Every structure is written in C-alpha cells, then in structure tokens.
Amino acid sequence: MAEKKRFVNPYNFIPFEGNINDKRISRETAYAKKSELLSGWLVVELTTRTPLIIPDGAHPKYWDIEKKEYINGEDEVKCRKNDIHKEYDFF
C-alpha cells in the first residue's frame, strides 16, 4: 500500500494576540490627529528592465459592443451591461 503524502503549506501565519477586531479603528479615528501625520514627496528614477504599460485608470472610455460606439461613462446603468467594454489610454 502506497504511503499517503501530507501537504505542507509553504508559508506560516503569525497568530494575533487577543481579538483582531479590538485593534481595528476607523480611518476617521486613525487620521484625527492631523498634526501627527507626515506629508511630502519622493523624487525617484525608475529604470524598467522589461516593457511597461501604465494605463490611465482615472479616465476610462466605455465602448458599447452592440451599438459600436463610445458611450458616456458616467451613466452607470449602461456601463454595467455585459456588452460594454472599458478601454484605457496610456500615459
């Protein structure tokens, strides 16, 4: 009879002490003390080693496959149909 192999996950989870829900706080509570927040920017140089495509996700276009025309993306009822294709321009 062949021995049954046991599956072992390649990762381990660290257990939380107590109840994790006790540690969750709302964003309003987390950012209430605005004087303690840090703000700024980083200047970086990015060197890609493979081709990189960055879509403009803030301004999608909606193509109606049935009508073969672009439609107004703000009309959410139309955009939820299965025959609508979302397109993105590239930066």
Results as ranks from 00 to 15, higher is better:
1 M>R: 14
1 M>D: 10
2 A>D: 13
3 E>I: 14
4 K>V: 13
4 K>D: 01
5 K>Y: 11
5 K>G: 00
7 F>S: 05
8 V>K: 07
10 P>R: 09
11 Y>M: 07
12 N>W: 06
12 N>R: 14
13 F>Y: 07
16 F>N: 11
16 F>A: 13
17 E>G: 07
18 G>I: 05
21 N>P: 00
21 N>H: 09
22 D>H: 06
22 D>L: 05
23 K>N: 09
25 I>H: 03
26 S>N: 02
26 S>W: 00
27 R>Y: 03
28 E>R: 07
29 T>Y: 01
29 T>I: 07
30 A>D: 01
30 A>C: 07
30 A>T: 00
30 A>N: 02
34 K>N: 13
36 E>W: 03
37 L>A: 14
37 L>S: 10
37 L>D: 11
38 L>S: 15
38 L>H: 13
39 S>E: 14
41 W>P: 00
41 W>A: 06
41 W>Y: 12
42 L>C: 04
43 V>R: 05
43 V>S: 09
45 E>S: 14
45 E>W: 00
46 L>Q: 12
47 T>A: 15
48 T>E: 08
48 T>A: 11
49 R>W: 01
50 T>R: 13
51 P>I: 02
51 P>T: 06
53 I>W: 06
53 I>Q: 01
54 I>Y: 02
55 P>K: 10
57 G>H: 03
57 G>Y: 06
57 G>A: 05
59 H>P: 02
61 K>T: 08
62 Y>G: 07
63 W>M: 10
63 W>T: 10
66 E>L: 14
68 K>M: 00
69 E>T: 14
70 Y>N: 08
71 I>K: 12
72 N>M: 06
73 G>M: 03
73 G>F: 02
73 G>P: 02
75 D>Y: 02
75 D>P: 01
76 E>T: 11
76 E>L: 09
77 V>C: 00
78 K>D: 07
79 C>F: 02
80 R>D: 03
81 K>F: 04
82 N>L: 14
82 N>R: 15
82 N>Y: 11
82 N>M: 11
83 D>A: 07
84 I>N: 04
84 I>G: 01
85 H>E: 14
86 K>T: 15
86 K>S: 11
86 K>H: 08
86 K>G: 00
87 E>G: 12
87 E>Y: 07
88 Y>L: 14
89 D>N: 15
90 F>V: 15
90 F>Y: 15
91 F>L: 10
